[in-house]
Design a protein around this nucleic acid. Structure first.
Length: 802
RNA sequence: GCGAGUAUGGCGGAACUGGUAGACGCGCUAGUCUUAGGAACUAGUGCCUUCGGCAUGCAGGUUCGAUUCCUGUUACUCGCACCA
């Protein structure tokens, strides 16, 4: 329709006027909570990648509504974050203003594409009415001893005088100014997420996440089971180490401590080469995380003179070293070094000329270590290990562990890569952390009655000289009274990370206007949980983990109805530029959805994005292919001219098959093949001189989730029934989708030589006989011995000859 | 290095629990209609060829039969990156 702009506006107005997509808490209806990640409303406007995810979930929402579910499909804004702040620093426009404008643009764009969001539940994480509850929940973390302040390392740009995220300091260089990033220690708020490591693993059982999403969660948590044991220091004192390879304990030839750990500080008074050790510690602290973790750096380190450690199993005295490959915040910050069976230890030993003792037999170790990945499960036996020599690795693992436990110096321990969540940001544009520091009372939460702690207006958005949030420069914000004792106190000026607001927004949608609670238990119970959550691959690890942690905590203190509030999580592939590269301004390959809507209409854009390929895979944009979808919609439109005043389907089998395929495919994310089924149907109907009203209306309903405007218009134009958005999704008749006559292939030695027509379920003998009569079959079997004939019912015949 | 994913015509991609590989769309070729351009419609379109053969990254294996299952291998993409 050339006047698609008019039609789209008309139906968008109809949906608004009729509140068609607003979810009400009706009783007696099955609920379906359909969620798609809310966007960060950037200045660039909506991206075609957003459109892909929103359309897919819109298809689901529209089908589910027509299937009689009470569907909640909300939208909102994740509007705190660094880009708005950087924009503010450059242009001196308050982020609040910029965000407001961006939200207006985004919303208008979304409306123009016809997503069936329930706009009555819209909110932004930056609304004081919303972040009041983010702050309130932080206070619950604090009250349950889940939030604490601790020294952490931060990436510090000495030029910008700003704390940087890991993303902004890749390669050890500040993304903004290019300076070398330093490591600084800062006291920051932390959430005890590591306490939830096991629960977060365990909770995956109560979800229906896509397998690759579950794996992402598991890898991020990074559980490893092992043994922690105590090591005595010659002349008194001890420390512990964690290992997953206790079977190699007799191979210890030295220990390595983390230069940034507490242990070395404790030992310092006994260290003889203090200067050298201190110098190494200093050097390490200057290296950014990236430098430290980069491979092929060699194994730097220094011998700690004056202290030796004792191997608890054989009493052997071995040296202690410092090495920056050991991390202060993982395990105990100290490792036992077995160069024969760990490649890092091997390299370290070679570099520092240390002893190497092989304790597991099975391979030469002169070139590289014989590691657990190579010896486990292969029946390898221990050597040089006193009474454990001769045992298999697996036997030794268990026996040595038990021995250490019996002696009271070892215990089975799980370690996790996942750390506590660093929750403070020295930024302006975030939720203020609602804490007050009083010299007498320590940290005191802001009383509920004083929430929210509203972000004040500031003149300067730059961080202060010493890298604090710009809030620290506002005296009237910082200075306050202690809520406990009334003495003069100071307000926390750090703000929360962007992950905070997005960790619970899906709960707020269930009860978005509540001003007494973040959401009422009653409403949360009504909606139960998110049934289907869709978003980008890049968020399947961290955002999802933070959100699950947040929910599990709320569950444990009785504030949400389920331990897992998200049932299915799926993620879609990216839309790449037409050159196959990621869309970016600098590459000039960005496609603006507005231009497509203007040139082809929203329906064409939607159909194209669903047709582009496998939903879960990346796919490049192709404007020619888009035109094909436009052509398809025009065909559907022209088909209307053939409608005659008849009921019933003109092709029962085809129609029933199509209904089944479109329903099943859409609900299992195979949006592309659902559309292809509709194209086949249209191609068939086109061949007929006339089509019935039922033919056409069913086609329009099936296409409606993808192309909601044009289908409503055609439905109205040909007076086929009430608006599709108020209609019921068609059913199919299982018995009618099977063809009675089937054509099957006949193979000779696995090669297709012809085909025969059979009746459904025709018996094998008769099928065989038909096959043998084929000219081509006779030709290829003539003069040969028929070894056997395989008949697969309704599928294929294969004749094997010699 | 570890983990995950992907690999099918000129292109995007189909193919149920192993059963006619290339659905559907794009592009391309020829034709019809048009003053022309475009649109629309019709027919064709994996490769090599005479029967026929060869084709799902590569090399093997299992099977009457493999894009699908198994072993090995290569390339690319993403995530994590010295996690003891």
């Amino acid at each position: 329709m050339s006047n698609y702009t008019e039609i789209e506006k008309k139906w968008q107005k109809y949906w608004d006027d009729h509140h068609t997509f607003e979810a009400k808490e009706e009783k007696g209806k099955k609920t379906f909570y359909d969620l798609v990640e809310f966007p960060y409303p950037s200045g660039e406007g909506l991206h075609v990648g957003h459109v892909k995810g929103y359309t897919a979930q819109d298809v689901i929402a529209r089908i589910k509504r027509m299937q009689g579910y009470n569907v909640l499909y909300p939208m909102g804004w994740d509007a705190f974050g660094a880009p708005a702040e950087r924009f503010a620093i450059r242009k001196h426009i308050h982020p609040r203003e910029a965000v407001k404008r961006n939200i207006e643009t985004f919303k208008a764009q979304m409306k123009s594409i016809g997503f069936s969001f329930d706009w009555s539940r819209e909110f932004s994480t930056t609304d004081p009415e919303y972040y009041k509850w983010t702050q309130w929940q932080f206070i619950q973390f604090f009250k349950h001893d889940m939030a604490y302040k601790a020294d952490t390392k931060v990436n510090w740009c000495p030029t910008c005088k700003m704390v940087l995220s890991n993303e902004d300091s890749q390669g050890g260089v500040c993304e903004q100014c290019g300076s070398q990033v330093e490591q600084r220690t800062k006291s920051q708020w932390m959430l005890r997420m590591s306490d939830y490591a096991e629960d977060l693993l365990d909770g995956l059982k109560d979800t229906n996440f896509a397998e690759r999403v579950k794996l992402g969660q598991i890898n991020w948590i990074g559980k490893s089971e092992g043994v922690e044991f105590d090591v005595q220091i010659v002349g008194g004192g001890n420390f512990s180490v964690f290992t997953t390879c206790i079977e190699t304990i007799y191979g210890i030839t030295f220990f390595v401590l983390a230069p940034d750990g507490k242990l070395i500080q404790e030992l310092m008074p006994r260290v003889k080469n203090k200067k050298e050790v201190e110098k190494y510690i200093k050097e390490t602290s200057l290296k950014s995380t990236m430098d430290r973790t980069e491979l092929n750096k060699g194994k730097s380190g220094v011998l700690v003179e004056g202290v030796k450690a004792i191997n608890p199993v054989n009493g052997k005295e071995v040296p202690i070293y410092l090495g920056d490959f050991v991390l202060g915040d993982y395990g105990t910050g100290a490792v036992m070094a077995v160069p024969s069976h760990d490649q890092r230890d091997f390299e370290y030993a070679k570099e520092h000329d240390l002893e190497i003792i092989q304790v597991i037999d099975g391979r030469d170790i002169s070139e590289c270590a014989f590691e657990k990945g190579d010896y486990l499960g292969k029946g390898c036996k221990l050597i040089n290990s006193e009474e454990y020599s001769g045992l298999t690795v697996e036997e030794a693992k268990e026996k040595i562990t038990t021995m250490l436990e019996d002696k009271g110096i070892g215990r089975r321990v799980n370690n996790y890569k996942m750390r506590d969540w660093v929750f403070g940001r020295q930024r302006f544009w975030g939720e203020p952390i609602p804490m007050i520091h009083c010299d007498k009372c320590g940290w005191v939460p802001v009383p509920d009655s004083d929430l929210p702690v509203v972000l004040p207006d500031v003149v300067n958005y730059e961080p202060t000289e010493d890298g604090e949030s710009p809030l620290a420069a506002i005296e009237e914000f910082v200075n306050c009274k202690c809520p406990k004792c009334g003495a003069a106190a100071k307000r926390e000026t750090d703000t929360m990370p962007q992950w905070a607001g997005s960790s619970w927004y899906f709960l707020r949608y269930m009860d978005p206007h509540n001003n007494k609670e973040f959401a009422s238990m009653k409403k949360m119970k009504y909606w139960n949980r998110v049934d289907w959550y869709n978003g980008g691959m890049e968020h399947t690890a961290r955002h999802l983990l933070y959100a699950r942690f947040w929910v599990q905590f709320l569950y444990n203190i009785g504030l949400v109805p389920n331990k897992e509030m998200i049932w299915t999580r799926v993620s879609h592939g990216m839309i790449l530029g037409s050159n196959g590269e990621k869309m970016s301004k600098s590459k000039g390959n960005v496609v603006n959805p507005d231009e497509i809507v203007n040139a082809y209409g929203a329906d064409t854009l939607r159909v194209y994005e669903m047709f582009i390929g496998d939903y879960t895979q990346d796919a490049p944009w192709n404007t020619d292919s888009l035109k094909g979808c436009d052509r398809f919609l025009r065909k559907v439109e022209r088909l209307g001219e053939k409608v005659v005043d008849k009921t019933g389907y003109s092709q029962e089998v085809l129609m029933n098959k199509t209904i089944k395929k479109v329903t099943d495919d859409n609900l299992s994310m195979k949006y592309n093949t659902a559309i292809s089924a509709l194209m086949i149907l249209v191609n068939e109907l086109e061949k007929q001189d006339e089509i019935t009203k039922d033919d056409y209306r069913t086609l329009l309903i099936l296409l409606n989730p993808d192309a909601p405007h044009i289908t409503e218009e055609l439905n109205e134009k040909y007076k086929l029934g009430k608006p599709i958005c108020e209609s019921t999704w068609p059913d199919y008749d299982e018995e009618k989708i099977v063809d009675e006559a089937i054509t099957i292939a006949v193979q000779v030695n696995g090669k297709v030589r012809g085909s025969i027509d059979i009746v459904k379920d025709e018996d094998d003998e008769s099928v065989k006989a038909k096959a043998m009569k084929l000219e081509n079959v006779i030709k290829f079997t003539e003069g040969k011995e028929i070894v056997k004939t395989i008949v697969i019912k309704n599928k294929i015949v294969n004749i094997v000859v010699k």
